[in-house]
């Protein structure tokens, strides 16, 4: 299975990773190997098997609608790279 540079670039963009030309080359090859490995699964006939979304046999894990204490503001903002009053501060991004 081959994977072109454009695809790797797109995936890198979606993950917000900047790649240099050399890295792009290297990662394209690695991704190809990974996909080839995964592709081994296609030898199995899964036509009659429902897709698995969860591997554990548990369901309906729920909690009651009862409020619990939130974090104190000092703790919430403790590791924030930047803050102002009660707010987190981020570079301006408008979509």
């Amino acid at each position: 299975m081959s994977i072109d540079k454009k695809t790797v670039e797109d995936v890198a963009h979606l993950a917000r990773i900047e790649l240099e030309a050399k890295e792009l080359e290297k990662l394209s090859k690695q991704l190809e190997h990974i996909l080839a490995f995964i592709d081994k699964l296609s030898v199995l006939d899964t036509g009659n098997i429902a897709p698995t979304s969860h591997i554990l046999p548990i369901s309906n894990v729920l909690r009651k609608d009862e409020p619990r204490k939130s974090l104190p503001i000092e703790k919430t903002l403790m590791n924030a790279p930047d803050k102002q009053g009660n707010f987190f501060v981020v570079p301006k991004v408008i979509e």
Partner: peptide, 11 residues
Amino acid sequence: IHQEDISLVDF
């Protein structure tokens, strides 16, 4: 909340 060159975030 967008300001001049930063955005304030309330979660």
